[in-house]
Design a protein around this nucleic acid. Structure first.
Ligand code: FES
Ligand code: FES
Lengths: 151, 151
DNA sequence: AAAACGTGGATAGTGTTTGTCCGAGATTAC
DNA sequence: GTAATCTCGGACAAACACTATCCACGTTTT
């Protein structure tokens, strides 16, 4: 069970964007955090595809959030980067091999799949309980503007 | 976020073992489920290392559970196969780049790491709420013995 | 002794993650 | 209009984890 490393980058970027007063270029975001510029650009594109950020093209462009920070949950960011596919996938082993069950007994998901799905729902529910606004509360906008301003 | 595919195999094996009246060889377990014998053997070794199953070596040997099925949770099996490392790891981005915070402000885990850790605790708690005994309730021991008996 | 069985390491093949690079297109400043 | 700045999207490669196989070896029962 592992989460893509880009998730942390994306979350930090969203926090910064939530407190920035103007669009921030992807290269600038990378410098702020000390990570690869080109790879971070990929993750930002994923955020854009998910509709969480908008890219302003052209000179003086950059990325900005599309919604209020309080309307973007941690789960939104995680799913944008890591995908929304379930961590566990039932491969219907119960229907294979010598111990196979007849198909008429397999109309509903098996017990294992149900437990896994329920656990994942708990995980998602927990992640959806925190927003970018919550995470950004401790970041001083004045300091951010100062760092961003003197490019 | 993805779980190792061997987790499903291991869970099905534990369910079978919980209702078997004698040790079951790994090759037999693989045939019962229609999966690779050699690869399943690897996963069973992982279960043995975690102390969930015991291997009876030698002729007429095989695997058996070490505890009551009701004392083995789904989480135990998942961690035995997939490892117990957290899905998210904070790489302390807050201390890197231009926006780096001074170390004296980084003594406690950052907000992002806290949210992730709490979500993972929810996931684990949910998985620990179901045992192998729960999963095996619907498996008929008589049928299992019949299939196992005529090798 | 022989047969059946698990152990642990070595070894590939495969797919995913991570990361780089570059051309095309959009937008603004001059 | 032209140049500069910036994003977009895809191609590409290296690194890594997952999946799977095989074999030599030790153990246990008959
Ligand atoms: S049949 Fe294996 S998890 Fe559903
Ligand atoms: S500093 Fe990035 S998640 Fe903790």
């Amino acid at each position: 069970m592992k989460l893509s490393g880009g998730v942390e980058w994306a979350l930090h970027c969203c926090v910064v964007l939530s407190r920035a007063s103007a669009p921030v270029p992807s290269a600038r975001l990378a410098e702020l955090h000390g990570v690869s510029k080109t790879y971070l650009a990929k993750h930002l594109q994923a955020l854009a595809r998910a509709g969480l950020v908008r890219a302003a093209e052209g000179r003086d462009g950059g990325y900005a959030l599309t919604r209020e920070p309080a309307a973007i949950t941690v789960l939104d960011v995680v799913e944008a980067i890591d995908g929304d596919q379930p961590a566990f996938r039932c491969t219907e082993i119960r229907q294979q091999g010598e111990l196979a069950l007849p198909p008429e007994e397999c109309r509903v998901p098996c017990g294992i799949a149900r437990v896994m799905a329920e656990a994942e729902r708990s995980w998602r529910r927990s992640l959806a309980g925190t927003t970018i606004a919550d995470l950004g509360a401790s970041l001083d906008p004045a300091r951010l503007d100062r760092v961003l301003g003197r490019g």
